[in-house]
Design a protein around this nucleic acid. Structure first.
Lengths: 234, 234
DNA sequence: TTTCTTAAGTCATCAGATGACCTGTTGACT
DNA sequence: AGTCAACAGGTCATCTGATGACTTAAGAAA
């Protein structure tokens, strides 16, 4: 037997919800200043602490901004503010990682298409730079891993969609450590695999130079498959 | 002349940061119980309110869980917990919406491929149901819009990646109102366009029935293009 | 006019008091 | 032995008065 427990029992959660709704309903709008903590406490007929905790929570979620000595304001949310919230400490299961990697794969494939069409000359240079860094540091797991991430980051940037950049970075982080670990193994056991990775990056780079989105997508798909098998099949 | 201002001046923010770091560094691990508020106040040599506000903020971000009468615990974060944080009230610019839509397009295209391969019989039924709902309510902007979202949601589910589901839902929300609005215009001015939308959904459905991922992707791409032009070219 | 001082408004933080809630223990009752 | 009510200890939830810090703007001084 199982009963429903009251969802938001805590006062400050209720208050946070109410304030959020007031924003959603348009009673108060982004940019507006909220009443002072004291005033809110009177309006809601609760103590100041309940108000403060509600506001602190809303601030942590990026919904409002509390400025000491000034007041509390509703934040204006733009696409820039949208991002994944992935605690860095999170320890994911193998299955979680595969899900995350699948998302990354999808983002990266959709992305490379845009990147091939929109990449600038400067970005091609940055890619080239990351490529040679990767080559120079082939057997340095940390440096080459960084260059690897840089390579992918530039591609994201070339796609000219900040939201995509931020999302891709978020889903890449949890796998970054894994990748570095894998690279560090390869660096002592399988130089051929490392060289292969570099070849694949070069193929992607060449496709981008030619602004060939079909080819770029193909090359990226192949690369991601390689990475995936290296990551999950050991 | 400009000086660096201390990034986290507020006490409770500093404390939140420290606690977060302790988790990242492994000093305390997911599942662990934190010291009591009083104890933490003594350890940090601050008042209880600073501690409580720090904890409230961390809880709002999903990092810890505060249980009345019991204590405070570090949450175990899995892929399920990863999600986009998009306030429902956010008023996005046309440009923002296009960025968001592009992400949606990428996710949905990557998704449909998986869905075509993994869809179950039950999901095909749900799709069929959503389809006929859409057909029945062609000129009811609200109902058909709901059926539309349901259709896409089932596809997300069929792709068998909860993380994808949650991410797609997040990026779909901000555009949902727009879509509903567009549908409501079409319902009074352009029944042919509505019928066309339904045709496209049917094409997607058929491809899914045949487990033809190439065709499904093509159909979805066409559909999304239609939606995009309806949304942004008026 | 420009600069300095001051006052008002507001957030930041502390600390004492109380209530609400959870868990485990104890002991009576079945 | 099993069940359960009552109790105690620990902890979160909330209120409140006090004080400090910070921002803004009005008014005084240069």
């Amino acid at each position: 037997m199982k009963f429903e427990v009251p969802k938001t029992k805590k006062l400050y959660e209720q208050i946070a919800t109410i304030i959020e709704q007031k924003i959603t309903l348009g009673e108060i709008s982004p940019g507006d200043k909220l009443d002072s903590v004291e005033q809110l406490a009177k309006n809601f007929e609760v103590g100041r602490s309940a108000i403060r905790e509600a506001l602190t929570a809303l601030q942590a979620r990026g919904i409002i901004e509390i400025r000491q000595g000034e007041g509390t304001y509703i934040r204006k949310v733009t696409a820039q503010d949208i991002s994944l919230n992935i605690p860095t400490y999170a320890s994911f299961s193998q299955q979680d990682l595969q899900q995350i990697f699948e998302v990354r794969k999808i983002l990266e494939l959709g992305l490379i298409e845009n990147a091939a069409k929109r990449r600038s000359g400067r970005q091609l240079e940055q890619l080239k730079e990351a490529l040679s860094k990767m080559n120079d540091a082939l057997i340095d797991p940390k440096a080459s891993s960084n260059a690897d991430m840089q390579f992918h980051a530039v591609i994201a940037e070339a796609a000219d969609n900040p939201l995509l950049v931020s999302m891709l970075q978020s889903v890449s982080k949890p796998i970054a450590r894994q990748i570095q670990h894998t690279r560090s193994i390869l660096s002592t056991t399988d130089h051929a695999a490392l060289y292969n990775l570099h070849e694949e990056h070069t193929a992607i780079y060449n496709a981008l130079v030619n602004a060939d989105d079909i080819q770029a997508k193909k090359a990226m798909a192949k690369h991601l498959e390689t990475v995936e098998s290296l990551l999950f099949n050991q």
